[in-house]
């Protein structure tokens, strides 16, 4: 398999990373990263890429129209649009606190969607 050149998105440094593979297609080496998070990012990115999802959810009975939410952990990259459709169906009753779970275990990913701001 050919080498994969990546730019790490784990933090704003954006390290250029090279991943090489062995004959069986497994990751052989990860170079260019400057921290452990970069190594982990590169290995996930070439096998099962994941992303955090951040969006908003409608607020019912509050003065705010929407409250921002995020996935508590990264979700599979390919499921982002499906998750968005699911989140856009949801709403939450005011008052909302940071960390309130809006959707549990979204689409069976094992990841919760949680509020990231207060709403009254």
């Amino acid at each position: 398999m050919e080498n994969r050149e990546l730019v790490c998105v784990a933090c704003p440094l954006g390290c250029p990373i090279t991943v090489t593979f062995d004959a069986d297609g497994n990751v052989a080496t990860v170079t260019g990263n400057t921290c452990k998070r970069g190594d982990a990012y590169a290995r996930t990115e070439v096998t099962n890429p994941t992303r955090m999802i951040t969006t908003t959810v409608r607020v019912e009975g509050g003065s705010a129209y929407v409250v921002p939410v995020k996935s508590a952990n990264p979700i599979p990259k390919g499921m982002m649009m499906e998750c968005m459709a699911e989140i856009n169906k949801a709403s939450i009753k005011a008052p909302v606190n940071i960390g309130d779970v809006v959707i549990e275990n979204i689409l069976g990913t094992g990841v919760d969607i949680v509020a990231t701001n207060y709403a009254e």
């Binding site: 951040t54 995020k70 701001n117």
Partner: peptide
């Protein structure tokens, strides 16, 4: 920060990846 709902804030200062409202919070 209140409208910057994406994550990536606070990696240096808090050592974790927060959204804008969480960082401000």
């Amino acid at each position: 920060l209140e409208q910057c709902i994406h994550t990536g804030f606070g990696l240096h200062y808090f050592g974790e990846e927060l959204s804008g409202p969480e960082y401000a919070g």
